[in-house]
Design a protein around this nucleic acid. Sequence first.
DNA 1: GTAAGAAGTTAGCTAAAACTAATCATATAT
DNA 2: ATATATGATTAGTTTTAGCTAACTTCTTAC
Lengths: 123, 123
Amino acid sequence: MKQRKLTEDYLRTIYVLSRQKGVHGSDLAKTLCVSRPTVSVTLKSLSEEGFIWLDQGRNIHLTERGLQIAQDIDEQNRFFLGLLTGLGIEAETAAREACEMEHCLSPESFSILKAALGQQSGN
Amino acid sequence: MKQRKLTEDYLRTIYVLSRQKGVHGSDLAKTLCVSRPTVSVTLKSLSEEGFIWLDQGRNIHLTERGLQIAQDIDEQNRFFLGLLTGLGIEAETAAREACEMEHCLSPESFSILKAALGQQSGN
DNA sequence: GTAAGAAGTTAGCTAAAACTAATCATATAT
DNA sequence: ATATATGATTAGTTTTAGCTAACTTCTTAC
């Protein structure tokens, strides 16, 4: 796994989906719009890197380390989404752009930005 | 040329360097920290896509289309750099993160964000 | 109990973007 | 004028991340 964005997209998706129900590889394939073999290979490397683990029912779970990243990225996503939609940018555009912005800042930089702009975006 | 970020990084670098002097492939290799052959191949595709052209002295020039992108990305870079450093984030971190953020927003979304936050960042 | 279907994996391919090594071209210095 | 050094390109390799096709499992229906 080389690209940070790819790891973060998988972890955030697992995090969001797992709040509804058990997450399987096929759910990720659907949500991330990639094939099941691609998911299979990517999950193997995420598992080897200690971000996720699989139970006996093939449900995907985040490790402590994976969860920390997923929560940070998810919070950044919601922050930037709120900021952009709050400025009147169309929902689909804002969603696409927030999905890019969520990968730019370290947790430290993000918390500084959030503290400075928090009031404007409603978060 | 598939990745938008790659195109934009090249165009912005050409734009910035060309305000000092004529830009050659070797200058880009140095600034972007890639090999000369990589620059050569990338410039070929940027040229085929109508973003740049080369004069007889092998100086690289932006086309109208390339210049528009380069100026937009450069302005976004300076905006985000100002925003992050203005919040007290360390210069090197801010530079690295601004170089990511500059690729996230469309010109339209950026101009809305700039209008809303312009006063805080000093831009 | 077996057939069908859904989920997962393996194998093999492709494209993008990087690299090194080698070659080609040009320009400068003596 | 020729040798050296600088710059550009070509060829060939590697890695990452995607794909399809084929195979394996597992579950469920009859």
